[in-house]
């Protein structure tokens, strides 16, 4: 339980040009958040959302076992067993009641960012991403598809943006990938940089390396399966469908057949 009257820590975490201010009087949690989001903590004043964190060491915060995202009374209510977020986009403010763990904050932030992006034609994608020669490449796939493996095989000229969750923002008629602190098994934050998206690969484990064409309609279906999206609001689901079609219309997609060896990166340029 937080203690009334103790100083409030302010931490601004900026991911994909979207800054979120977290305020907490739990100094232990604040220190964990500063470590967790190393490279993404900024002094930015202009934030898209600000949250008061109320941390608890006790039992479950919510009875919801799965993530639940609902729009009610002009605010988002996002909850799972270890956290509950109430967030009014109109006021750009909300609260996070959570277990005293950065994992709960991490889950809450992912969902908040997915909602911010959805309103702007962007999305979070289950994909590793990396920059090579100034262009970003996305490697999409479910757990076990090889996102961390291909990231760990990257040569030294490659800048890793994430081995798990990629941050895609629409910029005019192009898309840009940003580094994220949302990590997979690599356990290392991505670099806080960005680049225009050159190509989307769907990872397919194989005995040898190669590329296979994916039609744009097929790409939309595969893309939708890998977009992180939690809301059941029809208008947002519809918007996400249109976003997937728009993305597939302007970013080429291929299947990347790969065996876990560094030579796979010869195909990425």
């Amino acid at each position: 339980m937080t203690l009334a009257g103790t100083p409030i820590e302010r931490i601004v975490i900026e991911i994909g040009r979207t800054a979120v201010l977290l305020r907490t009087s739990d100094h232990k949690l604040a220190k964990m958040l500063l470590d967790r989001y190393n490279g993404f903590v900024t002094p930015a004043e202009n934030v898209a959302a600000e949250f008061e964190i109320e941390s608890h060491d006790g039992g479950p915060i919510s009875s919801e076992q799965e993530v639940s995202v609902r729009w009610k009374n002009d605010q988002w209510i996002i909850e799972r067993g270890d956290f509950r977020v109430r967030w009014s986009p109109r006021r750009r403010a909300g609260t996070i009641r959570q277990a005293a763990s950065p994992f709960a904050t991490d889950s809450a932030l992912r969902i908040v960012h997915s909602l911010v992006l959805a309103s702007e034609g962007g999305f979070l994608l289950h994909a590793a991403s990396a920059i090579r020669n100034g262009r970003a490449f996305l490697f999409a796939g479910a757990s076990g598809a090889g996102k961390t493996t291909i990231s760990s095989l990257a040569p030294s000229d490659v800048v890793l943006l994430s081995d798990e969750i990629s941050y895609i923002r629409r910029e005019g008629n192009t898309y840009r990938a940003y580094g994220t602190p949302f990590t997979g098994e690599l356990g290392r934050n991505g670099e806080n940089v960005s680049a225009p998206v050159e190509k989307l690969f769907f990872l397919v484990q194989a005995s040898s390396n190669g590329e296979a064409c994916v039609g744009r309609s097929e790409a939309v279906g595969k893309l939708l399966k890998n977009i992180l999206f939690f809301s059941i609001e029809t208008s947002l689901i519809e918007r996400m469908f249109k976003t997937a079609v728009d993305f597939a219309s302007c970013v080429p997609a291929k299947n990347l057949l790969f065996s876990p060896e560094p030579a796979i990166w010869n195909l990425i340029a």
């Binding site: 469908f241 079609v245 597939a248």
Partner: peptide, 13 residues
């Protein structure tokens, strides 16, 4: 449902 045309094919979600 929502639908969008892509490469001459209609995608219906």
């Amino acid at each position: 449902t929502a639908s969008r045309k892509l490469d001459g094919e209609m995608l219906v979600a």
